[in-house]
């Protein structure tokens, strides 16, 4: 009997521990701890500028259609910006990584532009590309492309010279060298570059959508702000966070599918 109850007790204990572990591992934990922190602030500050999380959640659930529309518009812009940045940034980064002359010519320029506050260029883009989607997307590209190029370039430079020698010894053509060596080698860097880009572009929506926008989650937050409707504003902020979680998870999934175990930080064998 004693033996039995002890077994039951350890079983329960294991179950609880496993539950906590699974909870801590899950995305949900991040969300819940964020809400708890938020609630604490709400109670401490006791001002209507910080509404309670519950109030905000209820608000989100009440207007899902509108929010979805705004999110959709923003997501399209973000995807376009990231897609174009990839199309330009990856080849440019590779070129700088493999070609010493390109690197020497372009690196100083990149280092010069990299730390500049990119948002400050917004008036120029508005002037050149109008107030529509073009200037918004170009602003976001301008914000993320330099770190994308630099991380790809660093990825190429980190390839050990012996790998290139191996490819040479098997008489690989230039195309084969990209297919078998350079692209698989920089794939993890591309993913970490994408992760950073998603974060920055979502944050920059606040600026990109603050003019001449009708739909967009950045616009939504700003207009709520100007109306001093803080529940609506925090609703928008919360939704950006949720969109971020969604995109990061999507990216993790893509990475798990496309990066082989050998170079995948997410698939280490124990």
């Amino acid at each position: 009997m004693k033996e039995g109850s002890w077994l039951v007790w350890t079983g329960i204990k294991r179950g609880i521990q496993g539950g906590i572990k699974r909870f801590a591992k899950g995305q949900f934990a991040g969300f819940i701890s964020f809400l708890i922190l938020w609630e604490v602030f709400h109670l401490l500050l006791n001002t209507h500028t910080v509404p309670s999380p519950l109030e905000t959640l209820v608000y989100i659930v009440k207007v899902p259609g509108v929010l979805l529309l705004h999110c959709g518009a923003s997501l399209l812009r973000v995807m376009a910006a990231i897609g174009i940045s990839l199309l330009i940034g990856v080849p440019a980064g590779i070129l700088m990584g493999v070609n010493e002359t390109c690197k020497r010519l372009l690196s100083p320029l990149l280092y010069f532009i990299y730390p500049m506050p990119k948002i400050a260029f917004l008036p120029i883009f508005m002037l050149l590309f109008g107030l529509g989607n073009t200037s918004k997307i170009i602003l976001m590209i301008w914000i993320i492309i330099f770190q994308m190029i630099l991380s790809v370039r660093d990825g190429v430079e980190q390839i050990p010279p012996s790998y290139f020698k191996v490819m040479d010894s098997f008489c690989a053509t230039a195309g084969q060298r990209y297919r078998y060596l350079i692209l698989p080698a920089i794939l993890p860097q591309i993913f970490s570059g994408l992760r950073i880009s998603i974060g920055i572009t979502l944050a920059s929506l606040f600026f990109a959508e603050n003019y001449a926008a009708v739909y967009g989650i950045g616009y939504y937050i700003l207009s709520a702000w100007s109306k001093m409707d803080y529940v609506e504003m925090f609703g928008g902020i919360l939704v950006i966070g949720l969109v971020g979680v969604l995109l990061f998870n999507l990216l993790d999934l893509l990475e798990r599918l496309s990066v082989p175990r050998g170079t995948n930080p997410r698939k280490k064998n124990p």
Binding site: P160, V166, P260
Partner: peptide, 11 residues
């Protein structure tokens, strides 16, 4: 090669 040069992403 002495360093072998096995590519880490290839089985």
């Amino acid at each position: 090669f002495q360093e072998l040069g096995l590519l880490p992403w290839q089985t």
